[in-house]
Design a protein around this nucleic acid. Structure first.
Length: 653
RNA sequence: GUCUCCAUAGCUCAAUUGGAUAGAGCGUCGGCCUCCGAAGCCGAAGGUUGCAGGUUCGACUCCUGCUGGGGACACCA
């Protein structure tokens, strides 16, 4: 059950005496941060006292006297200026924990009024291999789907694949001019990726060559500007400030030039590549033309597209299979293509879109930049596709809420998208940009390889699994004969689970809105707040059952009851009892880190219990039976919680 | 130039959205395996929450200014 919700509902009736808007005061009832104050605390007395013109402490005392919680808590305690502290009674806790143990959903009741959620996440481009940039969306989106679904909602995880964009023009151009037939027959996806990178490289090359004089000019101008600013009369402090700013800008230009030179020399140092670059001076324009032809229904390009897409999707699917991530829908951009003209026509008809500088735009009151739904050349944009998608998700999919698990840098786009959708008639839908920050390297800049390329997702996963394997082997060495050896294939499987779990957990444990520094060492470290810590706690429970020679199923079916006699047992029980409440609060702002945090604390409460309370050698048979049950429930909550994060558990590691 | 986000222990991050003495992990120092798995447990040191004001019973959180850093700013998604 949701303890917090229950306590709040008890307070609601008492508070109605003081105010007709109790909601904001009920919000101020929450779990304590410091366990010395009990288990839950109500902090509304100070605020409410002001409204009623009363002494806050008196008011707290009055409420505490009136509140009916004797079945759940010990008598409430009023502290400080008017905090009402609640401590769950051992009797109630015992009953609750036994109820949870007997329930195959660990006591988490499905929500009373389920909603239909469409969760848009991952969204890779089919033409390009997946890279680190896709990790957060994929992992966070998957966790949100799993949690919402477990809470009883109707959830449609939708992979809005980029399968219609400009990158296809590049691939088609590459296919027509640079194809290595043998390589294509051997591994089509690899060859297509190579073609994409190659065409991209040549486009960049020509762009940068054209840009070079401008950069040089910019550099010269900036230097002059700095000199002029230095010579100009004026306040010293202001001048210093200006100098600093200009020097900063100068640095940016210098970096651009250095970067550009590097890319140019990569091409020029290879005579073959340079020759090809010379032979294709218009490559960028012509690639765009190929895209336009594809969009216009050109049979040849459409045929190639139909040939490429399934192959690429297969490759992407391999990554999802490995990550154990599944979508309910995979409707890419191409799916909405036939509907885009109608979307624009409708927006025009409703007076929302109008022409500006040749493009069809929606202007949102209060924002200056337009939301472009059709470009000057007549092509539609991702804004148009997103609107068509919203329409589809509302009808026929009946979505009540649409979540977009997308990089925070796109927040401007989503702000305009949601506002446009509201004006367009979708005001009843809950739109939410579930934004997230960037994964950074050790240097604090977006995570790249040493040579400056983006890091492929698969190699990232391989690296983590490899590291996990190393850790397992070093542990095996350190433990000697103390533990049963894992068979080679089992070891590989365990490494896969620990490695991928490590990556996922490291991502999910950060507040999704923050950037974080990627550190393979830390997420697979032997000590600390890692997925391994929870997986280890789980494996230890399994170890207890092996040592006691009891089946977990048997314990679960038995009529034994959990009794809480030891303070470590109580701590663990309080922690377990909060599971349902945590899941709900994690979803109120779609923040999986609330769940990771909880699981860490739960595993910690277990480890602490494990250290002081023996299960096998418990003082009485009753206590042993009770602890077996408690420990089984702990393992179930840990496994369930990890499962909801997309992380697997193993019985031995 | 406009808008926007951020700054918390040596390092990496939390802080239930205004609550009590700001918490974890790593690192450092010190304890704990003849006892169910030490990938563990227990303890210590470590902070003027970038700076200066303000709002109030109460501020890491809200407001103003400053310093430093990221990001986004019409036809790429």
């Amino acid at each position: 059950m949701n303890i917090l919700a229950e306590i709040r509902s008890r307070f609601a009736s008492v508070l109605s005496v003081y105010t007709d808007q109790p909601a904001q005061y009920l919000e101020m009832i929450r779990p304590v941060e410091d366990s010395r104050h009990g288990d839950y605390q109500a902090n509304f007395a100070m605020k409410l006292a002001k409204l009623c013109n009363q002494n806050p402490r008196d008011l707290a005392l009055a409420v505490a006297a009136k509140i009916e919680l004797s079945d759940i808590c010990a008598p409430p305690d009023v502290a400080g200026p008017g905090f009402i502290n609640l401590r769950l009674s051992d009797g109630w806790l015992g009953t609750e924990i036994n109820r949870m143990a007997a329930d195959d959903r660990e006591g988490v009741a499905p929500v009373v009024s389920p909603k239909t959620y469409v969760v848009d996440f991952s969204g890779p481009n089919v033409a390009k291999p997946m890279h680190v940039g896709h990790l957060r969306s994929t992992v966070i989106g998957d966790a949100i789907c799993r949690i919402l679904r477990f809470l009883g909602h109707q959830v449609l995880g939708d992979n809005h694949i980029g399968d219609w964009g400009t990158q296809f023009g590049m691939i088609i151009y590459g296919y027509k001019h640079f194809l290595n037939q043998a390589a294509f027959e051997q591994d089509a996806v690899l060859e297509l990726a190579r073609l994409y990178r190659f065409v991209n490289q040549l486009c960049d090359y020509h762009d940068l060559r054209a840009l070079q004089p401008k950069l040089d000019k910019g550099l010269a101008e900036k230097l002059e500007e700095i000199d002029a600013a230095a010579a100009a009369p004026g306040d010293e402090k202001q001048k210093q400030k200006l100098q600093k700013k200009l020097t900063g800008e100068l640095e940016v230009i210098r970096e651009q030039i250095a970067d550009s030179r590097k890319k140019l020399s990569t091409v020029e140092s290879n005579p073959q590549v340079e020759a090809l670059a010379r032979q294709h001076p218009e490559i960028a324009v012509k690639s765009r033309l190929e895209t336009a032809k594809l969009h216009g229904g050109d049979p040849e390009n459409l045929k190639l597209w139909n040939q490429f897409v399934p192959a690429c999707l297969d490759a992407i699917q391999g990554v999802y299979d490995r990550l154990n991530i599944h979508f309910d829908l995979s409707l890419g951009e191409s799916y909405y293509q036939p509907q885009l003209a109608a979307v624009v026509a409708d927006l025009k008809e409703k007076g929302l879109a109008r022409e500006s500088e040749g493009a069809m735009c929606v202007f949102i009151p209060g924002t200056e930049t337009p939301f472009i739904v059709q470009k000057t050349d007549g092509a539609f944009t991702y804004a148009t596709t997103d609107l068509a998608t919203i329409k589809y998700r509302r009808q026929p999919l009946h979505a009540d809420a649409m979540l977009y698990v997308v990089d925070t840098r796109q927040s401007e786009h989503f702000k305009m998208l949601f506002e446009t959708a509201r004006l367009w008639g979708y005001g009843a839908v809950e739109f939410k940009h579930v934004n997230f920050g960037t994964i950074l390297g050790e240097d604090g800049k977006p995570y790249k390889t040493r040579s400056g390329d983006t890091v492929g997702l698969e190699s990232l996963l391989d690296e983590a699994v490899g590291e996990a394997l190393k850790v397992i082997e070093s542990e095996e060495l350190a433990n000697g004969e103390d533990r049963p050896k894992l068979a080679a294939d089992v070891k590989q499987r365990v490494a896969e689970i620990i490695g991928l779990g490590g990556i996922k957990y490291a991502d999910l444990k950060h507040n999704r809105e923050s950037d974080y520094k990627y550190s393979l060492k830390k997420m697979l470290a032997k000590e600390g707040d890692t997925a391994t810590y929870m997986q280890y706690a789980y494996a230890r429970v399994c170890g207890i059952f092996r040592k006691c020679d009891v089946e977990r199923d048997v314990v679960r079916q038995s009529p034994d009851r959990i009794v809480l006699s030891h303070s470590k047992e109580r701590n663990l029980a309080v922690q377990l009892a909060r599971f349902g409440e945590i899941l709900e609060s994690a979803m109120s702002e779609y923040r999986p880190n609330i769940l990771t945090d909880y699981l860490f604390q739960t595993a910690n409460a277990f480890s602490s219990f494990y250290d002081e309370c023996s299960v096998r050698d418990a003082e009485t048979p009753e206590l042993r039976a009770s602890r077996l049950r408690l420990v089984d429930l702990t393992a179930r909550v840990l496994a369930r919680g990890l499962e909801l994060l997309g992380i697997e558990t193993i019985e031995q590691m």
